[in-house]
Design a protein around this nucleic acid. Sequence first.
RNA 1: GGCCCCAUAGCCUAGCCUGGAUAGGGCGACAGCCUUCUAAGCUGUAAGUCCGGGGUUCAAAUCCCCGUGGGGUCACCA
Length: 555
Amino acid sequence: MDVISELSKKLNIPEKFFEIPKDTSMGDIACKYAFTKENKIKYAEQLVKKALKLKVVETARNVGPYVNIFLSWTQIGNELLKADILKGKNKGKIVIEHTSTNPTGPIHIGRLRNSLIGDSLCRIYDFYGFDVKKHYYVNDIGRQVAIITWGIENKIKPVKELIEKYDKYKNKPDFKTFFTYVEAYKKISKNIKFDSEIDDMLRKSESGDEKTLRKISKTARNCLKGINKTLMDMGIKFNSFDYESEFILNKDAFRIAKQLEKLKEFRVIEGAKAVDLSEFGFGKRSGGTVFLRQNGTTVYLLRDIAYHLWKAKKASRMLNVLGEDHKFEFNELKTLLKLLGKDINLDACHYSFVTLKDAKMSTRKGITAPVDRLVDEGIEKVYKRIIETNKNIKTERARKIAKKIAVGAVKYSILKIDKNKQISFSWDDALKFEGETGPYCQYACVRAKKLLKKTEIPSRFDASYLVLNEEKELLRYLNEFENIVKEAVVKNEPSAIAHYMYKLAYYFSKFYESAPVLSEQSRYIRNARIRLVYTFSKILEKSLNLLGIEVPAIM
RNA sequence: GGCCCCAUAGCCUAGCCUGGAUAGGGCGACAGCCUUCUAAGCUGUAAGUCCGGGGUUCAAAUCCCCGUGGGGUCACCA
């Protein structure tokens, strides 16, 4: 029940004048509307009188111009505890594109932020009622992939040192691709002849030579298998992998180039075809935004336009999860789509960079912090702890649980931070299990579910028996779930869910320590408490799920 | 240089959109709590120029302006 909107309507005061006080002694809801009036205190007193007449209000009093409202938890509580958490519906189709990391090596921690935010947004939008399609845009052409392809063709052998460094992963296709890349790159930078072979390959592929294009694409597709394995292991799945090369093969890119040539912004700059977007705020040194190079090959932006027009056919809305480095290009893309007369609903969720703090990661050459390694190290750490606390547990089961916890820790540590803030990534912080972490939330959920296993869930209960402060705090916060989901959608901000669920788990832990459930003598109180724990476990598990975090059976 | 993002205790972070009651948390430190639904938990203590300076307002961490520091971007790269 959205109490604030209820009070707003009944008292005829805009919602923004209501807030939830930090302290229960100041009521469940506070109203600060009286501050805007001449006779502040007198007005507040009148508000109190009005509020007292409402059904949801238990009592109300004013502290100066503040009006502190205490709600009737019997009514709200009964409604909340008997309801199922329901998915929204009929919000329409949306294509969410995320990750889209270049298939030139294993996925790295910096890039993981994209996948985690993207996957979480997919879950949040889905829960909110959208029909979500998850897309990965594969850059299967371009210089890096060409270099690797060249390396494979010329049977370049990677150096032993590198393979030893990543010994555990040496047979994973993404790592193998990376090994080849490092060595091929070395060779090419030493010899101009090799470099021109790459240029030749690029020119052929980007102008539409099918054979070359397919050859390069194969390299990318192979690497992608490894990347996808890592993502699947973390519970991140896609509906579609869209290959950039397709938009050259099907000639879409060239058709769009023809359309761009008809625009009044069209220019030819030193033989290259471009559009002058300076009046839209895109001042370029070269004087225009190039879409076809002097040699007739396509650039990324042109293929991106083709891609977005293709995606637009699939859904009425699109959302791209992109690093802040893509802001400029994204705005160019939107501007060009508009100039082409395409009215499409395209948004971006930009996030700031992840920098690597620990020397452990920053000093090494090439990739230094593959996600696989972080997760594996986390699993080892958790595994030890699990077999300590659960003596007779089977190895395989312990490892499965360890994985859920390690992944939960990593996901939470990244998702809890506001997307506009840079993350200085610390390996140790990401694998912490106490305090505001994923495992803390998982633990609260495990405790609740374990307790519930030992009893029936009562269908008859009365929330008026929940009188303790700890019970009311928990109830009050459970009631906020709906609002938080909405906020996360509006802001494209999974961290809102992360902070919510930590606090929710905290209120539960407090309740758990202070109020016995199963051993409670009074049947009425016991039933109400069981129902409270039941609702809590459902909402917390859903919140965890919205971040892509699973709940293990034991911890 | 132009444009965009960020700045809150030793470290990390919430609050900023929509201005109001002593600026919430977490880590680390210190002190307590396990014969009771799993202590990955709970309780308490110490720790703050909310980057600096102006302005608006009865009221500014929050809004506006000017700075400072950090990051991003302005490719015939993707």
